[in-house]
């Protein structure tokens, strides 16, 4: 191939070095890692099994009730009932539950990892300076690139899909947790300090509660990104609605792809509205803290 940029370094050597290094990791730690992540897999399967164990005519009213509790409005539960019912009618109940399980597990891990990292970032300008470009890379790197190492480590299946989903969906939560804490009214922080709060007391009495609306926005974005990842994750054996879409593409089956796509849209709407409504309820106390 004619290439008008000169070969300054022999990239083949560099690449084979990287590949060799990673293959080394795979062969020496692959088995250990797989065992280590077994509990995660059990959790994921547990959630999925539970969602499928609960009869649809119980699950739909429960979600509707939760949505009513969050919004205090009758429109949201009706929309929830219609959308979930349609999902079932379209024959997508089982894959939808698999997708929900994957998304919930990924979001759960994203929260457990993302919020503490965001808190640490807000305390240290140096850590923030290091983390922001890392987060940029995590968000701009094409998602497929994550799949390669995870698949190599774990083989195709739910665990690499879950891990790739977490990596892809955690950055907004880290960012917004950091931002939320940094933007807390400095006078409140000063007041809390002046009354002798330890750093931990300051965090739990003032910073986290006041940053909650921003953190909730981060959780919302994380769930949405996790959901958008399911189609791609299905390529490495995560199953669920993404797999239906994938089959639609492979078999040029328009209706199959379209219905599965609709199912994803329904789930996205339900989760987005639920998290937002819950965030607003939390926010109520915080409005107009200072006049």
């Amino acid at each position: 191939m004619a290439d008008n940029f000169p070969d300054l370094i022999d990239m083949r050597a560099v690449r084979s070095a990287i590949d060799g290094w990673f293959n080394g990791i795979v062969s020496s730690y692959g088995q250990a890692l797989e065992t280590a992540f077994l509990p995660v897999l059990r959790l994921l399967n547990g959630i999925e099994d539970f969602l499928l164990w609960v009869p649809w005519f119980v699950l739909i009213p429960v979600v509707a009730l939760v949505s009513f509790a969050a919004t205090r409005d009758w429109r949201m539960p009706i929309a929830v009932i219609v959308m979930l019912f349609l999902t079932g009618v379209l024959g997508l109940w089982q894959p939808a539950m698999a997708t929900v399980a994957l998304m919930l597990t990924a979001t759960l891990f994203a929260i457990v990892i993302g919020i503490p990292v965001g808190i640490l970032m807000s305390f240290s300008n140096r850590l923030q300076a290091v983390m922001l470009p890392v987060l940029d890379v995590m968000q701009t790197m094409p998602i497929f690139v994550y799949l390669i190492p995870f698949v190599m480590l774990f083989g195709p299946g739910k665990i690499p899909a879950l891990l790739a989903t977490i990596v892809f969906s955690v950055p907004p939560l880290v960012r917004l947790t950091n931002l939320g804490i940094r933007e807390v009214n400095p006078e409140v922080i000063e007041a809390v300090t002046a009354f002798g709060a330890t750093p931990m007391q300051k965090l739990f009495a003032a910073q986290l509660p006041l940053a909650t609306p921003t953190i909730m926005a981060g959780i919302n974005q994380t769930t949405m990104m996790a959901l958008s990842m399911v189609v791609i994750a299905s390529m490495i054996g995560a199953g669920g609605l993404g797999y239906e879409v994938l089959q639609g593409i492979q078999r040029l089956d328009v209706s199959r792809g379209l219905f599965a796509g609709l199912g994803i849209v329904f789930l996205a709407i339900i989760f987005d509205r639920l998290v937002q409504a819950y965030g607003k309820r939390v926010q109520k106390h915080l409005e107009a803290g200072n006049t």
Partner: peptide, 12 residues
């Protein structure tokens, strides 16, 4: 102890 101009109360 201290009192602040914009009160510095915890809104939550």
């Amino acid at each position: 102890s201290m009192v602040f101009q914009n009160f510095g109360l915890l809104p939550n």
